[in-house]
Design a protein around this nucleic acid. Structure first.
Lengths: 221, 221
DNA sequence: ATTACTACAGACCGAGTAG
DNA sequence: TCTACTCGGTCTGTAGTAA
């Protein structure tokens, strides 16, 4: 917990210091930051001398607001993060066609899945999944997909058995439209399950190590 | 320049470490960060031990990617900043009606302004500006408006004289629709110029110290 | 009440250098 | 080449306390 202008300014901005002067004491600030009152005092002195905030001393504490420089720092950070998370973008990955376990056909015969896929993804899925093994380089993408703002396929019950939900992303696999399915529960470390309205296995040869997948990754906010 | 996980992770994310493993040496990283190779080395060790990144040592350098914890930190920061800058929102401020200098009438008689205001703001401006003096607490808002994504009124030339551009924001002033004009060049420290399709001065008594203005502040990205 | 000084302990960074 | 250890100087944070 050292002196980090960005972190401090974000805390002050959250309290409203972006637009207006806010009243705060170094004691209160120290509680927010989890440091001593003296440290909070030094931080405010530094932020002021470095031009990030305007500060007016009062007998009851400090009145402060962000300066243009401080605002600029935050907006720059926002722009950077926005370019990572904010924009809809395509994630391009490569993988190797894997032999499936045959389970996919069973799952994709369930009306509960078929109806939702038709409604939310706009196609009638071929009963089977196309599995792509990702390289070590690309496998972290799965985490990103799990946490992302994909299309939600809800869980449902058919008779006595419950089928879990998943998150889907529209994608192009070797140019064919389809969708990546990330099961909500089961965690595949490096295998991506892909569905389509056609039998992808007929179109792409097994073992092909350079299958290209373009995933439509929407903004999360 | 101390150890700041957020800053370091953002740098790595910009290099692509969000989705994939990236190859980097501590020497290269040190150049990016402006620190010594030793310090960059320590940073990577710490980021790894604190669980922000996954790191695989190679003879030619390090291969690393963000972990879920690291991703989470960045997304949290993004969400915070998004709530400050990203969403369209209303900025509410209060001010005191100020007596104008009469200049407004001259400017707002210029066809160059009138046409743009009609087109971009959707109303025919009354020839005159309504000036509101902001409290010390609210005056920083002007900076925020100057930097924001308002409606741009371009500069133009009429005969021999050039009229400067400004940034406008639709607003409600005491409930009446209008727009705040922020001149691109002239800097008013604490006075806001407001235009409307009616003579606001007739509707709001001069000296009124509690004039409420709701400014429509759009997302900047 | 506040803020912020001084003094000290501990953390941090960079140079040298080993593996 | 690479990473990362030790060492020493410097910087940072906290406690005590003054104003």
């Amino acid at each position: 917990m050292t002196y980090e202008p960005a972190r401090l300014l974000m805390g002050l901005a959250k309290k409203g210091g972006l637009e207006k002067y806010i009243d705060i004491t170094t004691g209160d600030l120290s509680k927010d930051l989890g440091c001593s009152q003296q440290t909070a005092s030094i931080y405010l002195v530094r932020l002021t001398s470095e031009g990030y905030i305007d500060r007016i001393m009062k007998s009851s504490g400090s009145r402060l607001r962000m300066t243009e420089k401080g605002l600029d720092l935050l907006m720059r950070m926002y722009a950077d993060l926005h370019s990572m998370f904010g924009k809809e973008r395509m994630i391009k990955i490569k993988g190797q066609v894997a032999s499936g376990l045959g389970e996919g056909a069973y799952y994709l015969s369930q009306k509960g899945y078929i109806d939702q896929i038709k409604e939310k993804l706009g196609f009638d899925p071929y009963p089977g999944t196309f599995n792509v093994l990702l390289s070590q380089q690309d496998s972290p993408v799965i985490e990103l997909l799990r946490r992302g703002a994909g299309i939600d396929i809800g869980s449902f019950t058919n008779g006595d058995r419950t089928f879990g939900g998943c998150i889907c992303y529209k994608c192009l696999i070797e140019g064919h439209p389809g969708a990546v399915m990330i099961p909500a529960r089961t965690i595949h470390k490096n295998t991506l399950e892909i569905i389509s309205d056609v039998r992808l296995r007929s179109l792409i040869e097994e073992g092909n190590a350079g299958v290209e997948i373009d995933i439509d990754y929407p903004s999360s906010l």
